[in-house]
Each structure stands twice: as structure tokens, then as C-alpha cells.
């Protein structure tokens, strides 16, 4: 499951680090480190973290939008 955090928006509230600690961790007091390709078993926790983020900085890929696995160089996605 792909995700990205808009770190311009992120203000280090750390809600995500409580709700999905295997994906989001605080690094120092404010800086956030996250796994941009979280395991699918984390989907529910990541969804909760994205919902709880006070500044709505977490973008999680919609399952329907996910491109299929790698194909040739000229494919349509």
C-alpha cells in the first residue's frame, strides 16, 4: 500500500505514530519518518492514522487507482 505524507503540512502532532506505529515514527521531537510502502496488513491502522491527522497530511492510495504490477515500457495505466 503506497502512501505519502505532505511534510509541509505535517506539524508533528504524532497521532499517526500512535495509531500506526509500524508505519509512522517520530524522529526527534517533531520530524516524522514513515514507510512509503506499508504492508497491506497495516491498511486499517494507516486508514485510521490518515483520518486522525489534524492537518490531513497523509495521502493513502485508493486501491482502485493502484497500477497493476510492473509491465513493459509502453503500457496503459
Amino acid at each position: 500500500m503506497r502512501l505519502v505524507v505532505d511534510l509541509n503540512r505535517c506539524q508533528g502532532y504524532a497521532q499517526c505514530a500512535f495509531l500506526a506505529p509500524d508505519v509512522f515514527t517520530m524522529h526527534g521531537d517533531e520530524a516524522l519518518l514513515y514507510d512509503p510502502h506499508a504492508d497491506d496488513t497495516q491498511r486499517e491502522q494507516v486508514r485510521r492514522a490518515a483520518t486522525a491527522c489534524p492537518v490531513q497530511a497523509i495521502l493513502v492510495e485508493d486501491q482502485d487507482a493502484a497500477p497493476a504490477s510492473a509491465k513493459g515500457a509502453r503500457d496503459v495505466r
Binding site: L3, D35, P36, H37, V60, R77
Partner: peptide, 28 residues
């Protein structure tokens, strides 16, 4: 940052998609 620290893999940094694109990709 996290890739050099071993907290994420370099090949697992693909950006999430908002929506299906239905685009022609000419990569490489």
C-alpha cells in the same frame, strides 16, 4: 532520510495515486 536509515526500501518509494490515469507511459 528513511531509505538511508534502512527504514524503507529505495524501490518502495513509488508515489500513491489519486485516481486511475489511463495514460501511455514511455519510461526509460
Amino acid at each position: 532520510k528513511q531509505v538511508l536509515l534502512g527504514r524503507a526500501a529505495a524501490e518502495h518509494t513509488a508515489l500513491p495515486r489519486h485516481s486511475a490515469l489511463n495514460a501511455q507511459w514511455r519510461l526509460g
